[in-house]
């Protein structure tokens, strides 16, 4: 039974693409056949984070518009045989995605995959709507700041009223993923705490990903951060996916840690 998961946030730049790559990779590492789709048509970021940008020939829009078939467009991950990427087009606009077209592609993917991870664009417009419309579960990516939390709240409202499941009277399962968490700034009162965000959003907490240089390094190298199993962010993502799959793991990285050399240099 394939599961469609949307990674969404409302606000831009909070870590959706980073999360999509990490979650898809972690699912695949645990043996699940996984595909990750870039819905951010026109910007195309996921292929960079997954390190497959030089292998894009056909893209998601081509498949939706029936200019290419799935086999031609799916890119196999460099490291994992059971992980595939469906990249976005950089040259088309978001209106190229249609409900019917997206549904057809998702149905075809459901025949082969266990998990379909949809990386949503920012905002609440057409592209974001397309990404969430067929979702059965949503990972709501939020940064510990007021505007991000407000946008997440808004997108949850849309998820529970405008998705297909909602239209049919059901509920999309929600998970809260707090990213770019900086305990020092929380302690100084510059950022909201985990408890604050949980209380405002009233969504079960899937995980907290610390602000980490490992993420930047991973993106630059095109290797999703979960492969960096020594890093805090890599471990936090791996924990989150384990919890998603039903394991009981305590939350980590919520407290201030001793400053390492890099943190002292760059100011953590």
């Amino acid at each position: 039974m394939a599961k469609v998961i949307v990674i969404t946030s409302g606000k831009g730049g909070v870590g959706k693409t980073t999360t999509s790559a990490a979650v898809a990779t972690a699912l695949a590492l645990r043996g699940h056949r996984t595909v990750v789709i870039d819905f951010d048509v026109g910007l195309r970021n996921l292929d960079l984070v997954m390190g497959c940008e030089r292998r894009v020939v056909y893209d998601f829009v081509n498949v939706v518009q029936q200019e290419a078939n799935l086999k031609q467009a799916l890119i196999k991950d460099k490291k994992l045989d059971n992980l595939f990427i469906l990249p976005a087009s950089q040259t088309r606009d978001k209106d190229a995605l249609t409900i019917d077209g997206v549904e057809r592609v998702l149905n075809e993917l459901k025949e082969t995959f266990d998990y379909i991870v949809c990386d949503s664009p920012a905002g609440i417009e057409h592209g974001a709507h397309m990404a969430l419309y067929f979702a059965e579960e949503a990972i709501v990516v939020t940064n510990p700041e007021v505007s991000s939390v407000r946008d997440s709240d808004r997108i949850i409202g849309i998820l529970q009223s405008k998705s297909r499941i909602a239209e049919q009277g059901g509920t999309v399962k929600e998970h809260l993923l707090l990213t770019r968490y900086n305990p020092e700034r929380v302690a100084r009162g510059e950022m909201l705490s985990v408890t604050d965000v949980e209380e405002i959003l009233a969504v079960p907490l899937l995980g907290v990903i610390p602000e980490s240089e490992a993420v930047l390094k991973a993106s630059n190298q095109g290797v999703p951060v979960v492969h960096d199993s020594d890093s805090d962010a890599g471990q936090a993502y791996e924990d989150a996916v384990a919890r998603y799959l039903g394991e009981d793991r305590p939350h980590r990285f919520l407290e201030r840690q001793k400053k390492g050399f890099l943190q002292r240099v760059f100011g953590g």
């Binding site: 709240d153 808004r154 949850i156 409202g157 849309i158 529970q160 009223s161 009233a202």
Partner: peptide
């Protein structure tokens, strides 16, 4: 029944 979110 349920929460009323921002924008609703």
């Amino acid at each position: 029944r349920g929460n009323i979110r921002s924008g609703q």
